[in-house]
Design a protein around this nucleic acid. Structure first.
Lengths: 118, 118
DNA sequence: GCCGAATAGGAAGATATCTGCGCATACTCT
DNA sequence: AGAGTATGCGCAGATATCTTCCTATTCGGC
């Protein structure tokens, strides 16, 4: 749907917020599936139906510089008998994007967006 | 369904036959998913609906000594960007089991099965 | 000959990520 | 302002294996 430059989509806000929750609860780095489980239970249930949606959002956000990722050691995954994970971490730019998005949503209605109510 | 000692089930016959086909066509070792794709297309379509059925049969057959398996190098899988595979190879005992099963099926109608037409 | 025990098969779901396709939306040009 | 184009989001499905629960079948003992 052709992204408006500088926009942060609802799903992305949810991801970034959840990432912050993870850090707060001691989980420094997270992976897509973990995120999916948390988002399903939370308010983000409507924001996420298919898994592909989430993974695309993650790679999008990484390309935007809001996240950095790294493959976990393939052997670690093999030892635990599960597919390997891609571990994500939030960057300063990610925090900034979240701030920008939440700021736009609540505190003061934007004064100069080039848009006027009818 | 309580296995008769020495019996080879239809699905197992199909697996062993397909394994021989693989060797003949240059694919020495095979994995479950490859097998599933071949069995779906072939006559074994009825023998295999769910994946779980196939994987259970494979581990059964390995326990019986008809197959040996080995995990592929986790890094090889990671390099190709897919889940890791378990590679199977047929043993001499496997060939023997297949021979026993096909022999029992075709050459001479059993003379003494303890069954008579009404 | 019948009944009980054991096991095979099926469905469903967990684990994890990626790609292709359709359609909607934001932007641009006239 | 209206129409067309391009971007890219979200859904569905592919990739690969394993586990649990339930049902159906069948072997063998009594």
């Amino acid at each position: 749907m052709r992204r408006k430059p500088g926009a942060v989509l609802p799903l992305e806000v949810a991801i970034l917020s959840t990432a912050i929750d993870f850090v707060a609860s001691g989980t420094g780095r997270f992976h897509g599936f973990l995120l999916a489980k948390h988002l399903r239970g939370a308010e983000g249930a409507k924001l996420l139906t298919a898994h592909g949606t989430l993974y695309k959002a993650l790679s999008r956000m990484e390309k935007a510089g809001w996240l950095v990722s790294e493959w976990e050691d393939p052997e670690a995954a093999a030892d635990e008998g599960r597919p390997r994970r891609r571990l994500y971490e939030m960057t300063a730019a990610g925090h900034a994007a979240l701030a920008r998005a939440t700021e736009q949503a609540s505190p003061a209605p934007p004064r100069d967006v080039g848009w006027n109510p009818v």
